[in-house]
Write a protein that binds this DNA or RNA. Structure first.
Length: 575
RNA sequence: GGGGUUGUAGCUCAACUGGACAGAGCGACGGUUUCCUAAACCGUAGGUUCCGGGUUCGAUUCCCGGCAGCCCCA
């Protein structure tokens, strides 16, 4: 199905082409009106065409409007100001488009990804370490982009590229053997492994013998020593189990978990390929790639001690993904410190002839009270703690002040939905590029522009619909309920026109990899609904108005639920 | 030193790739519940969009030059 903008654009494109047949002008674009007083939609392109056509913009707009008759669904098209074309559409058409949208399985979202594949690379924590608030952005933003692509019809391969290889495992194995009690070794909880690593790492800095022992363990692991290999596998397994527990809470699912180690066997081949292509050269014992054309610093692909680094692994990984999935694009969601790394990586892949579009979605690093999040600062808030606190705060609001006794299962479930919704929305509502300073109150806000605001709007509309269904014995959410939604009062019309923008919001959010576009849209939509709800009685209105309004509400409920789902935020029907 | 990124209301952020009067949330002040869920709604106050140039009918947006914060590279 077409979006409203595209239908209107098609009409205006025809009009412009008719008025100026030989000019070869670019197709005009119709956008939602910036203000309801101008109409429903607007086109600003007559002004831009003034330069090309050497005519005053108003003359151009007039000629275009005179060249083609108004389509039936356009009530009026007027020229305003320097040359804006303001368009008002008929309420019947608006109502029809909403009905059509609400009835379509995709809710009007264009299936532009059909037959295409996207590999999503996000979250990617380090094995044997606990997840903390620094991991939340990649996880939540990446997962939302993942969901957006799926909604557009793409086949999405979500791959958790674990940090599961490297020098830290020598340190960890040594720490595991020396710093843990037999019981701790037996259970190998991630928290204990992390502590063993920290202690071992600290010791290695002052104790040369210890440091050498760590290195020896690493070499044994790399050479395939069965005992170390078994330990390493165990570390990975318990890490995955632990991460999965948290991902389950967050509603995040991966199709595969291919850590860095998965590409070990390919690394020598990558080096060979780079050398054959004349891209790599020896320098001070290391193998490097230069980027004179791109004006980037050199990248080391093999260190002087023969070890490989991230660049090499990521080249191998991109190649492997390209071979296996033939993706249209690979999207990496990491913090913005890695921008240089990805620029280098993408440049190398391009020179190797890789056709896959590689996209880096950088996000601002999260800080805590203005300081970097690190073990040294002692401000590593565990994801577990954050989620528990989110649940606790939401529960307090749900139960009110005079709560007594143990919370029920239903209350706990709701508290989790709301608390986690708040946490996720905080991240998703900001442009990824924005750096976020973590603050408990802001992260867990339940009012105003927050996840719970959207959830509340959803619960209210669900409640309304259920009451209607119970009284009338008809479900307005049914695809063929046959009631045209109300679009006459200003509140109804504003809500209706905003609803029609949903497909475009989803498409744009995916296109520029910013879930914040959708979050922002949904908040604006919910504001219009809340305003409508306040001013427009539904169940108490006379039957004709009541039915039309409930149809509008039903369509709104579907869109909001879908939008929240795409952000990975649960939408409870009762709050 | 080179590069990246950010700079918008007291605070946190938007602004649909150059459009009409720069909008929200929080905070402040003032209203709205015998009425479909007040986690809500309505209103008021609050701006040199970091500074200076340029491009043009029009700039928060694009270009040049500064300044400041954060980050990356040697």
């Amino acid at each position: 199905m077409q979006t409203c903008e595209s239908e209107l654009s098609a009409w205006l494109a025809g009009a412009f082409a008719k008025a100026f047949p030989d000019a070869g002008i670019p197709a005009p674009r119709v956008l939602p009106a910036t203000d309801a007083k101008f109409g429903d939609f607007q086109c600003n392109d007559a002004m831009g065409l003034a330069k090309i056509l050497h005519k005053p913009p108003r003359t151009i707009a007039e000629a275009a409007l005179a060249a083609a008759p108004l389509p039936e669904f356009v009530e009026k098209a007027e020229i305003a100001g320097p040359g804006f074309i303001n368009i008002s559409v008929s309420p019947a058409w608006t109502a029809e488009r909403i009905e059509e949208m609400a009835a379509s399985p995709s809710l009007g979202i264009p299936q532009s990804g059909e037959g295409k594949c996207v590999v999503m690379d996000y979250s990617s924590p380090n094995a044997a370490k606990q997840m903390h608030i620094g991991h939340i952005r990649s996880t939540v933003i990446g997962n939302a982009i993942d969901r957006l692509y799926r909604a557009l019809g793409y086949r999405v391969v979500a791959d958790n590229h674990l940090g599961d290889w490297g020098t830290q495992f020598g340190i960890l194995i040594k720490g595991y053997r020396e710093c843990l009690s037999p019981a701790e070794r037996e259970s190998a909880a991630v928290a204990d492994l992390e502590r063993a690593y920290v202690e071992s790492s600290a010791r290695a800095k002052t104790d040369e013998e210890w440091k050498n022992a760590c290195r020896a363990e690493l070499v044994k692991l790399q050479q395939g020593d069965p005992e170390n290999l078994a330990l390493w596998k165990r570390f990975i397994d318990v890490s995955i189990a632990e991460f999965t527990r948290i991902y389950d809470l967050l509603g995040v699912k991966f199709d595969m978990w291919r850590g860095e180690s998965h590409y070990n066997d390919r690394l020598p081949g990558v080096i060979e390929e780079l050398q054959k292509a004349g891209l790599a050269e020896e320098s001070e014992g290391a193998l490097i790639v230069r980027f004179e054309e791109e004006k980037l610093p050199v990248a080391i692909v093999r260190k002087s001690d023969g070890g490989y680094n991230y660049t090499t692994t990521d080249i191998a990984c991109a190649e492997a993904r390209t071979e296996e999935f033939a993706p249209d694009r690979i999207v990496y969601v990491t913090d913005d410190r890695q921008q240089l790394h990805f620029k280098q990586l993408f440049a190398i892949c391009a020179r190797l002839g890789m056709k896959t579009k590689l996209v880096h979605v950088p996000f601002g690093l999260m800080s805590f009270q203005g300081k970097a999040i690190s073990t040294r600062e002692g401000n590593l808030i565990k994801l577990d703690e954050l989620l528990a606190e989110a649940e606790r705060r939401a529960l307090a609001v749900i139960r009110g002040e005079n709560a007594q006794g143990e919370p029920s299962e239903a209350e706990l479930r709701l508290a989790r939905q709301i608390g986690f919704g708040a946490v996720k929305y905080t991240d998703l509502s900001h442009d990824p590029a924005t750096a976020i300073d973590f603050d408990w109150d802001k992260a867990l806000a339940l009012e105003g522009n927050s996840g719970p605001y959207l959830q509340y709007a959803h619960a209210r509309v669900c409640s309304l619909i259920d009451r209607y269904s119970a009284a009338e014995g008809a479900d307005p959410r049914a695809a063929a309920c046959g009631i045209p939604p109300a679009v006459s009062t200003p509140a109804e019309k504003a809500l209706a026109l905003k609803m029609l923008q949903f497909p475009a919001a989803v498409a744009r959010a995916a296109d520029i990899c910013k879930p914040s576009v959708l979050a922002d849209y949904l908040f604006g939509l919910s504001q219009l609904y809340s305003s409508f709800y306040q001013s427009s009685p539904v169940l108490k209105s006379e039957p004709a108005v009541r039915d039309a309004r409930i149809a509008l509400c039903a369509a709104f409920g579907k869109i909001l639920a879908k939008g929240l789902e795409l952000l990975g935020i649960e939408a409870p029907e009762r709050i």
